[in-house]
Every structure is written in structure tokens, then in C-alpha cells.
Design a protein around this nucleic acid. Structure first.
Length: 565
RNA sequence: GCGCCAGUAGCUCAGCUGGAUAGAGCAUCGGAUUUCUAAUCCGGCGGCCGAGGGUUCGAAUCCUUCCUGGCGCGCCA
């Protein structure tokens, strides 16, 4: 989507300068204070070619360019040429567009006929989902929604960590110390075995070898190994699905690493035929020294495959299966090198689509005391956090709005939403310290704040009780508080585009805070419902537009927007 | 040692594809509710934007050196 107001300014400037449209468009900015105008064109860059001071250029341009509808004033302020929109026309364009497009406001067609594969969440099976698994799942889910909104066909893949030496470890632990009634096992039981293995392995170095042997059996299709592994996987999936359901996260495919087991031999063979690999210290590797990277390991000395091998095979498979235009891996930044290696190998294999693979990395979540570790039991289970969030919200509802109907549903929406919003509101590449009171803070720049604002707007509309009309006198929306709100509403589609461009959902959560701050400012100083019918109608239209944007934005983040709370 | 990421108010962060006086929230102090939900709003306090050097008309933003913290660097994922 293009900003039609911006476009008009570009065309006006194009007539009076020698610059091309793109250059002008890049320069145009939104002034820090709306008193200075709605759009501004800095004249510094022109001063070189024109050999005149920028202030002079600005004032000359201001004289030369006469304002045309919807611009009603062009004024030089220092070295800037500032454009003032006709507020009436601006409000009309914005509010009518939102009013017409409703749930589709913000959507775009740039992704039509393009496919994006998004690999997110991708936890290891046989371990609980813990809070540090949140980030990949939530960022991935949000990116899925963002790209879908922009017209892309999205394929969400949960690339389960269901293969690897760790399952050899688990099988060993189960056979040595496990209760034999596998039907009754939960993830907690598997987790205990996993922890036990690592405790014992510190005392007995042979255990690791034994585990590697069992993994080899697994890769070779040994009956007992496969049966155990399959059961471990079923137990895990059952519990994962429960938590995903709580979070409202879905996938198009649950395809784990094991799925590619039958393909890796072929993949490795082709790599070898291309002469990309060599043997080093008994392992099969691809030397990447030329590219300033450590080697990529394909096969261990016992011939079994590694994570990278399976990722390469998986990428090939996905390319053939989905013909993607872009493939996004939402995986922690500690795996940056791994993905750089994998992408480089794909490129060396001759795949031009290797350039369309992106590692969307994010910072580590840890405790004040240090790293989270399943092995050491240093985790907060995701499910526990979600339950606690909902419980705390229930208490607040009893305090503030005890007569609320559907308390359970609202508490769920708000509690889970608070956790989602908290996670998505900082830029993804920052490390985060997990702290109960931070995640479960419900005041200020939080999910509940956004949802609360939405609920209040809904409340006004309920009280109004009549149909919203866009047949209003737009001149009545004249207060700065109103105009500032409408201006920020106009930005939503561009924020969405930017969040896709940078793979950054936090742009949307921060934007929503901005919208809510402006809504609340208006709300606190102006009445919406009043004796003045025309004014009420006008403000209702604006309120409804703000409500719509908050709802659309929350949906992108994977949150519900309760109409009452 | 090498590589990647981060360092902005007491705390958590936004601003970083160079632009007008560095913005929020939390905390703290004070104020706003006979009227649309006070999970809100308004005001006060609070900053050598990690340090130095450079590029530029202009640097929190770009380059460079250094400091601090996190992560990664061959048989885990």
C-alpha cells in the first residue's frame, strides 16, 4: 500500500526539483511535532547541487509550490519544507478507509502468489515446553500472521527435535532405570529420565557411548529403538498440543527431523558427488574456511548424521514441496553460525533459493541467576506460567469488575495475552531476563492495557447502541487529540509492512501502545457521547476506527480482543 | 584467540535504512472520577545515548579503536 498523501507531496516536489520520485520519497519524513506539519522535506541534500543554503531553498520552494487539495499549506521552517494537510479531508480519507475495510484494513497484496515457509517453535520432544520456548513460537506465529495479512501463502512448520543422539540417551535411561509401563508415561517421566541420564553420565563415561550406539540403532531402523522412540514422541506431542492450544498457536505441519531420515543419505551423496565434502578426523565435513566459517559436519565418525545434515535435507525437501519464495527459521541467535553454515552449503550445492533463506534470530531468555536448563531443572514450565497469568487476572477481575460475564474466557484472553504481549514487545534480538513480576505486570505498556483500551471503546459503542455511520461532518474532529489519533491510525498498514521487512513483531506491539496512548488521551479529555448528535456521530466513527485497528493488531500478535473486561 | 549480538533516565525499553528540543513504561512525588470501565489520564523528578577518534551542513543512528556483558566457534540440537 502506498501513502496517497505522501505521493501527492512527492509529485509536487518532483515538478520543482531535479530529483527522481524515489529519492524524494526517501527524504520525506514525519515531523516530530504535528505543529510543524504533517510531512516534511529536508532541503539539506539540495543545497550542494543548488549551491544555496538549505533555509533559502526551503523558503523558495515554499513560494514556488502552491498547495493543492488535500494540502492546504506549505511552509518553510528553517531548512525544512513542511506540508500541512487539510485535516478534514485527511480524517475523511482515513476513517472511511478503515470503516470500509474493517478487518481487512492493513492487508496488502504484495504477497500474492508468493509462499513463505516459516519454521518456528520446533522444540525437542521428551522435554516440557518451558518459558524459553515461548519466543520462537510467538515470534513465528506473529510473522505467520503478518505475512498472511500481506497476501503471502504461509506454511507454518513445527520442525520437532525428534531425532538425534539425545534419543539414544533416553532409550538407554529408560532401559536402565525406567518404569516399564510406558503407556502411563508423561513428559515429566521422560524428563526425569533425561535428567537422570546426565547425572549418571557424569560418573560413567561409557553411558554416552551406549547412547550413541542406540541412536545408531534408531537410524538403522532397529525395532525396539523405533518403538520406544515413537512412544516418546506421542507422549510429547500430546502435551505440546495442549500448550499450543492455550497459546492459540497453530501449525500447518508437525514434521520433525526424523522425517528427513530417509533423505539424508541421498543428500549427503549429492554433496559428495559435487566434491564439496571431505574426510577430516574420521568425520565427513564440508570445509568452509574460504568463507570464514568453521567446517560443517555431515557425518560423525560412527556414520550417523547431525543436525546440520538433516537441516540441509529438510531445506531441499521444503523447496521441492512448497516452492517457497522465502523460508524463515525462527531460532535463537545461538544458532546463527549453524544457519550461516547451512545456507552456505545450500548455496554451494547450487541452489539459487539459498539466498531466500533467512535466520530470524532472537536473544536468549534466562534467569537473573543464569541460563535456563532442562537438564538442571532450571526451568519454568510454560503451562505453569500461563495458568498463573490467568489466575492473577481472575483475581483482578474480581476486584475491578466482579459483575463481568464470561469471566473465565476473559481471564484466559487477558492472562495469555499478557504473556504474549510481554514477550513480543521488545525487539527480538535482545536477551531477556525472565521475571514473574515483569511478565505478569498488567499496568503500563502491557497486553492488558491494550485490551482494556479496546474494551472501553467497545463499551462506548455499546452504550451508543446505534449503527456507526461515516456520513459525518469531518470538520468536527478538530482537536489535536483527535487528529493525532487519526494520524497514528493511518500508519497501521505501513507498520505492518515494516514489521514484515524486518521480521519484527515488536513494531506492532509498540505501535499498539502508541494507538492506545492516543486513544486514552482523547478519552480522558473529551466526551464521545454527548447531547450534540453530529459531534457524537463523528467521534463514534473515530472511536470505532481505533477499536478496529487495535483488534486487527492484536489478532496479528496472536491475541484476543475481549469486548468487555 | 576469532566471529555474531547488545550497551540510551535508578530499572525495563523505544528511537538506529543520518535530520528539527533524545521519548515511553515501571519506580518515586503530586494531581484528576456526580458524566462513555481509574487495568486510565495529567504534572514533577530523572540523560556526557558505554569511552575515544573519524565521516558529514548535521551522529544515539554510519566507519574505526577500545571497554563491559551475552552467545557461538568439529563429532549436541
Amino acid at each position: 500500500m502506498i501513502d496517497q498523501f505522501r505521493k501527492i507531496i512527492v509529485s509536487l516536489l518532483k515538478e520543482k526539483t531535479d530529483l527522481i520520485e524515489d529519492e524524494i520519497d526517501k527524504c520525506i519524513e514525519i515531523p516530530p511535532d504535528s505543529k510543524m506539519g504533517d510531512y516534511a522535506f529536508p532541503c539539506f541534500s539540495l543545497s550542494k547541487t543548488l549551491k544555496k543554503p538549505p533555509n533559502k531553498i526551503a523558503s523558495e520552494l515554499a513560494e514556488q509550490i502552491s498547495p493543492v487539495n488535500p494540502i492546504n499549506e506549505i511552509k518553510a521552517i528553517g531548512p525544512y519544507l513542511n506540508f500541512f494537510l487539510d485535516k478534514k479531508i485527511f480524517s475523511e480519507v482515513v476513517l472511511k478507509k478503515i470503516s470500509n475495510e474493517t478487518d481487512l484494513y492493513g492487508s496488502d497484496a504484495i504477497g500474492t502468489d508468493k509462499t513463505v515457509v516459516i519454521d518456528y517453535s520446533s522444540p525437542n520432544i521428551a522435554k516440557h515446553l518451558a518459558v524459553h520456548h515461548l519466543r520462537s513460537a510467538l515470534i513465528g506465529n506473529a510473522l505467520y500472521n503478518i505475512y498472511k495479512e500481506l497476501g503471502y501463502k504461509c506454511v507454518g512448520i513445527n520442525h520437532l527435535g525428534d531425532w538425534g543422539t539425545q534419543f539414544g540417551q533416553l532409550i538407554v535411561a529408560y532401559r536402565k532405570w525406567g518404569e516399564k509401563n510406558l503407556e502411563k508415561y508423561t513428559i515429566t517421566d521422560l524428563n526425569k529420565l533425561y535428567v537422570k541420564f546426565h547425572q549418571e553420565a557424569e560418573k560413567d563415561i561409557h553411558l554416552e557411548d551406549e547412547a550413541r550406539e542406540w541412536f545408531k540403532k534408531l537410524e538403522n531402523g532397529d525395532g525396539e529403538a523405533i518403538a520406544l522412540w515413537k512412544r516418546f514422541k506421542d507422549i510429547s506431542l500430546l502435551e505440546f498440543q495442549r500448550v499450543y492450544k492455550m497459546l492459540g498457536i497453530q501449525f500447518d505441519a508437525f514434521v520433525g527431523e526424523s522425517f528427513y531420515n530417509t533423505m539424508v543419505d541421498d543428500t549427503v551423496l549429492r554433496i559428495q558427488k559435487k566434491g564439496l565434502s571431505c574426510i577430516s578426523e574420521q568425520a565427513l565435513i564440508i570445509d568452509l574456511e574460504r568463507y570464514n566459517m568453521p567446517p560443517c559436519l555431515l557425518r560423525k565418525k560412527d556414520d550417523t548424521t547431525l543436525y546440520a545434515t538433516r537441516d540441509i535435507a529438510a531445506a531441499e525437501y521444503r523447496s521441492a514441496e512448497y516452492h517457497f519464495d522465502k523460508m524463515i527459521y525462527v531460532v535463537g541467535s545461538e544458532q546463527k553460525l549453524h544457519f550461516n553454515q547451512v545456507f552456505k552449503v545450500l548455496e554451494l550445492m547450487g541452489y539459487d533459493w539459498a539466498n531466500n533463506c533467512v535466520h530470524v534470530d532472537f536473544g536468549l531468555m534466562k534467569f537473573k541467576e543464569g541460563r535456563m536448563s532442562t537438564r538442571k531443572g532450571m526451568v519454568v514450565l510454560l503451562e505453569d506460567l500461563l495458568i498463573e497469568a490467568v489466575e492473577r487476572i481472575k483475581k483482578i477481575i474480581e476486584e475491578k469488575n466482579p459483575s463481568l460475564k464470561d469471566k473465565e474466557i476473559v481471564a484466559n484472553d487477558v492472562g495469555i495475552g499478557a504473556v504474549i504481549f510481554a514477550d513480543l514487545s521488545t525487539k527480538r534480538n535482545k536477551d531477556v531476563i525472565f521475571d514473574w513480576d515483569t511478565v505478569l505486570n498488567f499496568e503500563g505498556e502491557t497486553g492488558p492495557y491494550v485490551q482494556y483500551t479496546h474494551a472501553r471503546l467497545c463499551s462506548i459503542l455499546r452504550k451508543y447502541g446505534k449503527a456507526v455511520t461515516s456520513n459525518i461532518d469531518f470538520a468536527l474532529l478538530k482537536e489535536d487529540d483527535a487528529i493525532n489519533l487519526i494520524k497514528v491510525l493511518w500508519q497501521y498498514p505501513f507498520v505492518l509492512l515494516k514489521s514484515a521487512q524486518f521480521y519484527e513483531p515488536s513494531l506492532i506491539s509498540n505501535y499498539l501502545i502508541d494507538v492506545c496512548a492516543k486513544v486514552n488521551k482523547f478519552y480522558n479529555s473529551h466526551r464521545v457521547l454527548s447531547e450534540d448528535d453530529d459531534l457524537t456521530k463523528a467521534r463514534i466513527l473515530m472511536v470505532n476506527a481505533a477499536r478496529q485497528i487495535i483488534k486487527n493488531g492484536l489478532k496479528i500478535l496472536g491475541m484476543h480482543a475481549p469486548t468487555e473486561m
